[in-house]
C-alpha cells in the first residue's frame, strides 16, 4: 500500500478508525481454514449457511421465467431432505415484480434488489435514488446499493457518506446493504475506513457487503474479517448491530463454513443468523445442498440430481 497516494481525508479517517496490517489479517484468517467441523456441527453449519444465502441472478439476459425458477429454488432448494429456504433472492429492479409474483406474500423468502446503477454506480444521484424508490415500490424488501468509489478514491468522503444517507432515506422500510466493492478500494485500511463511513449512517438491521461480483476479486476471508471487525467495533461503541454480506467467489460449502467460523469467532452467537449474516451467491447453494444430502445419506450424489436454477455469480 502506498500511503502517500491516499487523499488526506482518507488518511485522517484511517487515523481515526485505526489501521489494518495485511500480513496479520491474512495470518488470522488462515487459521479459520484449519478448523475441523464434523457431524452435527457440520450439518448445523451447512443448514445455517443455506438459510443465509441471497440467491442471486444479475445478468443482462435475465427473464421473468428465469427469475420464477430462481424463486422456486429459493423456497425449496431440494426436493428431498429437510432443507430450509434461503434468506432472499437478489435480482435487478426490473425483475422485482416478477419475483414478487413468483414468491407471493408470506413465503419467508425476501426479495433483494440491487439498485443505484449497479454495479458501477455511475449515474446521477437523483437517478440512483429514483431507482431505489422504484424497486421498493415494486416490492423489494431489501436494497443492495453500491457506494460511489470514484468519490471515495478522490477523497470526497463526505459525499460518499451523504449519498449513503440519502439511499437509507429512500429505502424507507426496506433494509439496506451497502456494497463497498472492496476490490476497487485496494487496501485493507481503505476497506475498514469505508466500512465505517457506511456503518455510521445505516440503521440496525442494515448490512455492509463486500462486492458486486462483477469485478475480478470478490469476497475473501481477509476482507470479510476486516469488515466483521469494523461491525464489531461500531457495535461495541454505539450498540447498533449491522449485518454483513460477503458476495461473489464463495462457491463451495467448505468456503462457506470457513466464513461462518470467522463470524463465530469475531462477532459471536448473535451474528450466526440470517438477520445479520448473508452469503451473496448462487453456485454455493447446490454445493451446500449436496453436502447436506451426503451427511443425510452417507454418499455423494451426482450433480445432475440437483436442480440448476441459479447459475450466475
Amino acid at each position: 500500500m502506498v500511503v502517500n497516494a491516499q487523499p488526506a481525508a482518507l488518511r485522517r479517517l484511517i487515523d481515526e478508525v485505526g489501521n489494518v496490517d495485511q500480513v496479520g489479517v491474512e495470518e488470522r484468517v488462515a487459521k479459520y481454514a484449519t478448523r475441523s467441523i464434523k457431524k452435527t456441527a457440520k450439518v448445523w453449519g451447512l443448514r445455517t449457511a443455506v438459510s443465509m444465502v441471497d440467491l442471486t441472478t444479475l445478468e443482462g439476459k435475465d427473464t421473468p421465467g428465469k427469475v420464477a425458477s430462481l424463486c422456486a429454488k429459493a423456497r425449496r432448494p431440494h426436493d428431498t431432505g429437510d432443507i430450509p429456504a434461503v434468506a432472499a433472492v437478489c435480482v435487478y429492479p426490473s425483475m422485482v415484480r416478477h419475483a414478487r409474483r413468483a414468491l407471493g406474500e408470506g413465503s419467508g423468502v425476501r426479495i433483494a434488489s440491487v439498485a443505484t446503477a449497479f454495479p458501477s454506480g455511475q449515474a446521477p444521484l437523483r437517478t440512483r435514488l429514483a431507482e431505489v424508490r422504484a424497486a421498493v415500490e415494486e416490492g423489494a424488501d431489501e436494497i443492495d446499493m453500491v457506494i460511489n468509489r470514484g468519490a471515495f478514491l478522490a477523497g470526497e468522503l463526505g459525499r460518499v457518506q451523504d449519498e449513503i444517507s440519502a439511499v437509507v432515506e429512500a429505502c424507507g422500510p426496506a433494509a439496506l446493504k451497502v456494497i463497498l466493492e472492496v476490490s476497487e478500494l485496494e487496501a485493507y485500511d481503505s476497506i475498514r475506513a469505508a466500512s465505517f463511513l457506511a456503518l455510521r449512517v445505516i440503521r440496525e438491521g442494515d448490512f455492509i457487503k463486500t462486492s458486486t461480483g462483477k469485478t475480478g476479486l470478490n469476497a475473501t476471508l481477509g476482507n470479510n474479517q476486516v469488515m466483521l471487525e469494523a461491525i464489531r467495533d461500531h457495535y461495541l461503541a454505539t450498540g447498533v448491530a449491522a449485518g454483513m454480506k460477503p458476495a461473489g467467489g464463495i462457491r463451495t460449502a467448505k468456503q462457506a463454513l470457513q466464513f461462518l467460523i470467522a463470524v463465530k469467532e469475531t462477532l459471536g452467537d448473535a451474528w450466526l443468523d440470517n438477520t445479520r449474516y448473508r452469503f451473496g451467491a448462487s453456485a454455493l447453494l447446490n454445493d451446500l445442498v449436496r453436502q447436506l444430502e451426503k451427511e443425510r445419506t452417507g454418499a455423494y450424489q451426482a450433480p445432475f440430481y440437483f436442480s440448476e436454477a441459479a447459475e450466475s455469480y
Binding site: 454505539t238 462477532l267 459471536g268 452467537d269 448473535a270
Partner: peptide, 9 residues
Amino acid sequence: PELRFGDRW
C-alpha cells in the same frame, strides 16, 4: 453492548 461467544454453534 457486549458480544456473546456461547454455544450457538
